[in-house]
C-alpha cells in the first residue's frame, strides 16, 4: 500500500463529488489500495446514488435510446484495437504523446488520473471506430443482411444516411475468406429484378469491414452479396446474404 494515510475525513466529499479533480484523483488512488476506506466509501456512495431517486422524472428524448444503441452498435461492428504486449510497442508516437500529456496534466493537477487513463483508452478506441460512428450518427435507414447456408454467422448492416451528401455503406461482420481470384460483390437490385454491381471487395480478415457504396440505394428494392470470379458483368456466383431495402415514400 503506497499511502497509509486514510482519507476518512474526505469520503463524504468524494461521495458527493464535491472535490476538485486533483483531490478526487488522490482519493481514488488511495481507495484502490485501502480496503477499509473503500468499504466506507461504498456505504457513502450508496447514499449518494439514492439521491437521484428524489428527483421528478422528466420526459427523455425518444431519440436518445436509438442514439446510444447506434453508437454502441457501430463500436461493436468495428474491432477493438489489438492489445500489443511487447513493451516496445508502447513507444509508438501516439502513446508517447498521450503519456507525456498525461504526465503534464497530472503534474499540473488539472485533470484527475482516472480520467486520463480512461482518456488514453478511449482515444485509442475512438481512432478505430470514429469514422463509422460518425457515419452512424448521421442517422438514416438501416437494414441487416444475415449470411445464408455455409455463410451463416456472417452479416452486414446497410446504412443509408439521412445526410444528403453522405454515401451509403455496409458494415459487414465475420466475412469468410474467399478462394483465390474470387471477390465479394455487392449488388443493388431494382423492383424489376435487375442486378446492378455496386462494389467488389476482398475480405480484410478482420471481424468487421466497412464497404462504401458508389451508388445511392434510393430506387432499389434489394441489396445482396455474392462471391464472383469476374469483377464485371452479370451475377454468376453464389448468394451469401440478401435483404429487402424498402424506401420511404
Amino acid at each position: 500500500m503506497s499511502d497509509m494515510t486514510h482519507v476518512t475525513d474526505e469520503l463524504e466529499l468524494f461521495a458527493l463529488d464535491a472535490l476538485p479533480a486533483s483531490d478526487r484523483a488522490r482519493i481514488a488512488a488511495h481507495l484502490a489500495e485501502c480496503p477499509a476506506c473503500r468499504e466506507q466509501a461504498r456505504l457513502l456512495d450508496e447514499v449518494a446514488v439514492a439521491l437521484p431517486g428524489t428527483l421528478p422524472e422528466r420526459a427523455v428524448p425518444t431519440r436518445l435510446r436509438a442514439r446510444i444503441l447506434a453508437t454502441a452498435g457501430a463500436e461493436r461492428a468495428v474491432p477493438r484495437p489489438r492489445r500489443r504486449t511487447a513493451w516496445a510497442s508502447w513507444l509508438s508516437p501516439a502513446r508517447v504523446a498521450i503519456a507525456v500529456l498525461a504526465i503534464a496534466v497530472v503534474v499540473l493537477g488539472a485533470v484527475d488520473a482516472a480520467t486520463m487513463r480512461e482518456l488514453a483508452v478511449t482515444r485509442a478506441e475512438r481512432d478505430a471506430y470514429a469514422d463509422t460512428a460518425v457515419r452512424f450518427s448521421h442517422g438514416g435507414q438501416t437494414w441487416y443482411m444475415a449470411g445464408r447456408d455455409q455463410w451463416a454467422g456472417s452479416g452486414g448492416t446497410l446504412v443509408a444516411p439521412s445526410k444528403p451528401d453522405a454515401a451509403a455503406f455496409i458494415v459487414f461482420h465475420d466475412l469468410r475468406p474467399v478462394t483465390s481470384g474470387a471477390v465479394y460483390t455487392l449488388w443493388l437490385v431494382d423492383a424489376d429484378g435487375r442486378w446492378m454491381r455496386a462494389a467488389n471487395f476482398m475480405p480484410n480478415g478482420e471481424v468487421a469491414q466497412t464497404v462504401t457504396l458508389d451508388t445511392p440505394v434510393q430506387g432499389f428494392a434489394q441489396c445482396a452479396l455474392t462471391i464472383e470470379l469476374q469483377r464485371e458483368g452479370k451475377r454468376a456466383g453464389p448468394l451469401v446474404m440478401q435483404s429487402r431495402i424498402s424506401q420511404p415514400q
Binding site: P52, V60, L64, R65
Partner: peptide, 22 residues
C-alpha cells in the same frame, strides 16, 4: 450484447436523464 444495453437503458435511462438534467 446490444440487447442487454437496451434493457439497461430502459431500466435506468430515465433516472439517469433526470439526474443529468437536474
Amino acid at each position: 450484447d446490444l440487447t442487454a444495453l437496451a434493457v439497461l437503458y430502459d431500466r435506468y435511462g430515465r433516472v439517469a436523464y433526470a439526474l443529468a438534467y437536474r
